[in-house]
Simulated assay, not measured.
Amino acid sequence: MSNKTFQPAQLGPLTLTNHVVMAPLTRSRALGNVPNELMAEYYRQRATAGLIITEGTSPSADGLGYARIPGLFNQEHVTNWQRVTETVHHHGGHIFIQLMHAGRIAHTLNLPEGSEVLAPSAITAKGQMWTDQEQLLDHTEPREIQAEELARLRDEYVQSARLALEAGFDGVEVHSANGYLLSQFLNPHSNQRTDQYGGSVENRARFVLEVARGVAEAIGPERTGIRLSPWGTDADMPHYPEMDETYAYLAEELQKIGLVYVHLVDHSSMGAPAVPAETVATIRKKFTNTLILSGGYTTVERIEEALQSGHADLVAIGKPFISNPDLVERLKTGAPLAPLDPDTLYTPGPEGYTNYPTADGQPAGTFSPSYQA
């Protein structure tokens, strides 16, 4: 049986150079929430992935819950993201932007003046958030989004998706996973609304589907994907009885919208509960476009098994891409993977970001050290 991992793959209108996707990874290098040359260099180094999905990027000022994450809601953002997309395309890659509104996983110190922490219900998430001003602080209590505000929030995603195409992205991934705003609507622990956006499975899924539909209508369903994390417990998202029912319903409705892909996250390799095989099989059955699986795929054997069995159409890899800019080549040749430095995952500057060497010990980048943190 031929090896599928390194063969070209079709994703809607795009022909990807291989079946390996670089998963979205928050790296917190966007000073002032604006993409920069250092980020362009980081993505350039990793352009041999069949598809890059960027770090979570906020469609609005209110969604910038973390320190130094990028936005895409004004012309300065567009201009700076263009530098990223141009360099990735120049090196033969394809790139989607992940639109992520952090919702209640936020601290007001990380938001621009005049912005606020918003969520489906005014329930503070357990845990803490890093702020550059005062280091770790408890999450800010969010304000409950009023029903009449939801159309504006949806339109922020839609406008950001339009700007993404203007900035040269090949498409958009709507982030509805890992405890951020859209997945906060799905979970009854974070969504205790009593209007048409709370209560039943259909009501809790309503806003997610409105955003997915709005983005797909604006830029085309063939350029719109979505990330889901069934069984994920990140960001204070406990399990609930209708979990499988929720994701089966979402898969069915997303198929009707015609999204180009569903990207499923399984964080069991990092200690979270594993997504049951039957949950994935149900989603696979109800959503027949491209399915991307991510979580713990660090060997060609494991990737190949997922692709050959038909469980996945593409496989996404996250953390190994941080310390292995030439990850695809290493997988192909069997070169050992370099470990990442956990202390520099989210620090500003090139250290632990663009200075990881390739397998042959060569520097991956030629970025000038004049970047000022």
Rank of each mutant, 00 (worst) to 15 (best):
Q10C: 10
L11E: 01
L16Q: 02
N18V: 04
T26L: 13
R27N: 12
P35C: 03
N36C: 13
R44D: 09
Q45M: 11
Q45W: 03
A47E: 05
P59T: 06
A61F: 06
N74W: 05
H77V: 04
R83E: 11
V88S: 04
H90I: 04
H94L: 08
I95C: 03
L99T: 01
A102D: 01
R104I: 07
E113K: 14
V117Q: 02
A122F: 04
Q128H: 15
T131H: 07
Q133N: 12
H139F: 12
E141T: 15
I145L: 15
E148M: 10
L150A: 09
D155S: 12
Q159A: 10
A161L: 12
A164N: 00
E173M: 06
Y180A: 03
H189I: 11
S190T: 10
R193Y: 12
T194C: 13
G199D: 07
V201Q: 03
E202A: 15
R206C: 06
R206F: 05
R227D: 08
G232M: 04
T233W: 07
T233G: 09
D236G: 08
P238F: 10
Y247C: 08
K256S: 12
Y261P: 02
S268H: 13
P276I: 11
E278K: 11
T282K: 14
K285P: 08
F287N: 07
F287L: 15
N289F: 04
Y297W: 09
V300A: 04
R302P: 01
A306L: 04
F321T: 08
P325R: 10
D326L: 13
E329H: 13
L331T: 01
T344S: 15
T354L: 09
T354I: 13
N355T: 10
P357D: 08
A364M: 13
S368T: 14
